[in-house]
Design a protein around this nucleic acid. Structure first.
Lengths: 201, 201
DNA sequence: GATGAATGCAAGTACTTGCTTGCGTCATGC
DNA sequence: GCATGACGCAAGCAAGTACTTGCATTCATC
């Protein structure tokens, strides 16, 4: 299905521009990213950028579509072990990887409403986490129904997702001081707190 | 010490400009907020704004200083009950109120590095949470030492703060669907998970 | 009633930024 | 060998934005 090999030169420059847009927008946001800088990073003339995408907005949504597509996770759910802790670690890992790779775009989507007319890339950036979220909710509901978990499934899901996102944020914010930067270690800790709490009985 | 009553007209307009800046920057960020819009929101001529603060940067740091000052919390810690759960709820409430009131500015500080030369308002916005954080760490250390909690005090603190911040974010993001929007209810839930976990034994 | 400080108003400067255009160059494919 | 499509380059336009300036107005204080 995917043919990376024989890209036309036109598609190559298109991809370079998209990658540059992704990078610059991650740093400066939609508004702060100038077409000049994107073109420069892509090693391409600014005119070329407009010849490819028409407007800046066209580039923005093209890049959102390219990088924030909904990830397929049906298969990942298929191979859940059944053990509560292991399942949560597996789901959490999926979540964490996704949130980490989209972190900057998601952060921007928290503040930049679509400052222009067309569709917001924030929505795109969130769609993927949202899709995962619905899977998480479904899973939590099953576990609550089975009596393995207590509480409201949606609250639990939001909490679970939120603590992972907070951890991803924290790794950027407190990069220097973060003691558990290995993802697996951190995830096991988060799941532990989620399941056991941290109080000594 | 504080004399709100008899403000000179000059101080009044200054405060109106600061409030407008706070509002507009919360919506558009430092870069997106134009001096025109701030002046308009303040009901003040743009020239007046510059006569007061010199540059846009001057206004930015003045507003950060005005609205993101470090809150005094010594007294709040003083009246902790000693009961672990109650203490965490109390500290969490303090955190939550603070994070909620600064939420938009904090979100902007997550993405907008100082796009200009002077001191970043992000640092200002974080200073207050940071100050609270150090108190939380200190508290957690005491509790770990006393055997009430298990784990690394800093990890626990980051986690505790992170889950509250995630909840504050979630309340904005999932405002429509959030089931526990009452702060106290949510906080008790968060502290419960923190202390007990959510697994049925 | 005069003075001076604070502000409004309007015009303007210098720079950024999205976007266009016309032209020259180069490679690929018929 | 030549046509076509993709690109670079340079110049430029129009709108927005930070910031300035000179002048008129208001208003409190002496």
């Amino acid at each position: 299905m995917i043919a990376i090999a024989h890209l036309s030169t036109r598609d190559q420059t298109r991809d370079r521009i998209l990658a540059a847009a992704r990078e610059v927008i991650g740093r400066k946001g939609k508004r702060g990213a100038t077409t000049r800088e994107i073109a420069e990073v892509a090693g391409v003339n600014e005119a070329t950028l407009f010849r490819h995408f028409g407007h800046k907005d066209g580039l923005l949504s093209a890049m959102a579509q390219h990088y924030c597509g909904v990830v397929e996770l049906k298969d990942s759910i298929g191979r859940l072990s059944g053990d509560l802790r292991d399942d949560l670690v597996a789901i959490g890992t999926l979540l964490m990887v996704r949130l980490e790779s989209l972190r900057d775009l998601i952060c921007w989507s928290l503040v930049e409403e679509d400052f222009q007319d067309r569709q917001p890339i924030g929505g795109q950036a969130w769609r993927s986490p949202d899709a995962i979220m619905s899977v998480v909710i479904e899973y939590m509901q099953r576990r609550v129904a089975a009596g393995d978990l207590q509480g409201d499934a949606e609250d639990l899901s939001r909490f679970f997702m939120g603590m992972i996102f907070a951890h991803v944020l924290g790794r950027k914010k407190f990069a220097a001081t973060a003691s558990f930067s290995e993802p697996e270690v951190a995830l096991r800790f988060l799941v532990s707190v989620f399941l056991n709490g941290v109080a000594n009985k």
